[in-house]
Each structure stands twice: as structure tokens, then as C-alpha cells.
Amino acid sequence: MTLYSRITGTGSYLPPRRVSNDELAQELAGRGIETSNEWIVERTGIHARHFVADGVNSSDLALEACRHALEAAGRNAAEVDLIIVATSTPDMVFPSSAAILQHKLGIAGCPAFDVQAVCSGFVYALTVADAMVRTGAAKCALVVGAEVFSRILDFNDRTTCVLFGDGAGAVVLEASDTPGILASDLHADGSHVGILCVPGHVSGGQVLGTPLLHMDGQAVFKLAVRVLEEAARATLAKAGKTEADIDWLIPHQANIRIMQGTAKKLKLGLDKVIVTVHEHGNTSAASIPLALDAAVRGGQVRTGDTVMLEGVGGGFTWGAVLLNL
């Protein structure tokens, strides 16, 4: 029998603190940085984002998202035999946030590791989990995107600090005799490392370089729209599908303009695009599973729908996954 993998449950979690554009603008004004709700919305489509409290880490957000996903799938943590966490903001240098999450779930023994592909992380992690399920290495996987980007933002740079937020999303991916994950397409090009990065590291107990996010917004925009279209088309070709077969597009929630540009190139109406960036901001690896969970629980995405997930992030990394829910 041919093995496939299917998503059987989704979950997400946002920190309680919601920061509106007006509140953030007021905080930035205290630093001498001028911005406004209108300026942010016009350029990004973002109205608010969520920030963690002191002492709350990526694994804490991931834990809550996983609990919701497991409940939706009708599974308990003891049945999980693989954990993959996509994150660029791990709890610590090591061990992995996945191992820390495993312990918080009250289980032990199964493989648990992090994937670092920034905003493409969830697409990468889902592709890896799908491969492991198809080979029989796992039967019930937790695939998670979790981020606390508020900790690496430069709040003296209004072009970046207004974009990002914290959150987590998760799915339960299980072995199935019917196809769920239909195809995927992953890429990276390290020559673009300088346009989106956190150019710092720890050495001798000190931070060397800059431990805050740096981005060339225009360069990222141009590259993102092009590679997202290419990855989507490549994934469709692998699955023997066309744009007309897509019921829903769930892109990385970075910027409404990038999302609109990608939909236009794929000849999809905006009514087929799941958008949560206005409430969540850019939550990096968490953005796609957050949006998926919101769409499932909101009754938009339903069982049987064909869904295209796609992400692009620092590295530069990008990729897409086509699935039947």
C-alpha cells in the first residue's frame, strides 16, 4: 500500500498582548521615530500584531498551538512520533525548541528537531515531515511554526519594526492511504543573504555583529513575488494540476502587496486568498499555519479543498506545498 500524509488537525496561538498601529506609533514617538496607522496600513496592510510578555518563549507559544491542533485531530500527545519546529527565534542556542516542546508536551523518545528557513520554515518543515511519513519513519507528526520576532526588532527602524509579530501555528500530519500532501517545491539562494538577515552571533559570551533584523524592503519585494510564482507553478506541475484547481491560496503573511502580486500572477481572485496579516503582522514561520488554522476554524477552508501554501524568507529561501485538506 502506498503511504501518504494528510493534515488531520490545525491549531494556533497568539500572545494576549495585541499592539495596534496607533499604540505602536505612540511608543515609537517616545523614541523620536515618526509613523502612523495610515502610513503602516497603506504600505503593508497591517493593523495590529501580538507581542509576547517577558519570559515567554517560542516553545511556550508552540505548546498552546500544538494542544489546539491535537484536540482538533482527536489525538493525544502520547501518539506523536515526530516533532518538527520551524523557527528563527529559538528558546536558546541549543537544545532545539522542538526538544523543549517535546518535554512540555509530556512525551519523550520520538525525533524532535528545528528547521531554520526563516519565513519559509513551515513549508520546509511540512515537506520534511511529509517525506518521513511517506517512508514510514513516522505516523503522527506535529509540524509547528513558532516565533518571537519582537525580541530581534530594531525599534529605531520604522521600516521593519512595524512589520513583525509573535505567534505560533501547528498541524497534525498523519499517515493516510489517500493523498493529502500532493506536491512541494523548495529552493534557496544564499547570494541574497544580505537583503534580509540578523547579522549577529554569540562568541566568548558576547554578541558580535548586530543581533537585530535588517531588511532591504524593495529588494525583498521584487524577489518575493517572482519566486513565489515560480514555486507555485512548479508545485502545480509536479501534482499535475493548474491554477484553476486551487481553491485557496495561503501565502506567507508578510505584506498585503506581495500577496496581491502573487495572486495576480497566478490569476487568482483575492477572494481565494486567505489574509490574516492585518491582525497578526508578519509572524515569519508561524504565519502560514496561523492563517491556515484561522481559515479552517472560520469555515473558509474545508475538508476536500485544494490549498496552496507558499513562503519566502531570509536566506533567501522559498517554497510551496499543494495539499488536499
Rank of each mutant, 00 (worst) to 15 (best):
G11C: 07
L163G: 11
T159C: 06
A231S: 14
G217F: 06
V275I: 13
M132Q: 09
K139T: 12
I107Q: 02
E27V: 08
S96R: 11
S184T: 01
V227N: 00
E174P: 14
R49S: 05
V118P: 00
V321E: 10
G304S: 02
M308Q: 13
G205E: 03
T306K: 06
L24I: 00
G240D: 06
I107T: 14
G136L: 00
G55C: 14
C119R: 07
Y13N: 03
K238C: 00
A53K: 08
S191Q: 02
D91V: 05
R75E: 07
G106A: 01
V133G: 09
I46N: 06
V118S: 14
V220P: 10
A53E: 14
I195T: 00
P199S: 09
A99L: 09
A219G: 14
S58H: 00
D60T: 14
V220Q: 08
A138I: 07
T127Y: 11
G106T: 09
Q26H: 11
R6T: 06
A117C: 04
C66S: 11
L208Y: 15
L82Q: 10
A129E: 06
C140K: 09
K267R: 14
H252P: 05
P16Y: 02
S120I: 01
D177K: 00
D154V: 15
D245A: 06
V85Y: 01
N21E: 02
V56R: 07
G55K: 09
T127C: 08
V52P: 08
I152C: 08
S287R: 03
N37Y: 06
E310P: 01
H252Q: 05
L28N: 03
V193W: 04
A48W: 08
T10P: 09
R31A: 01
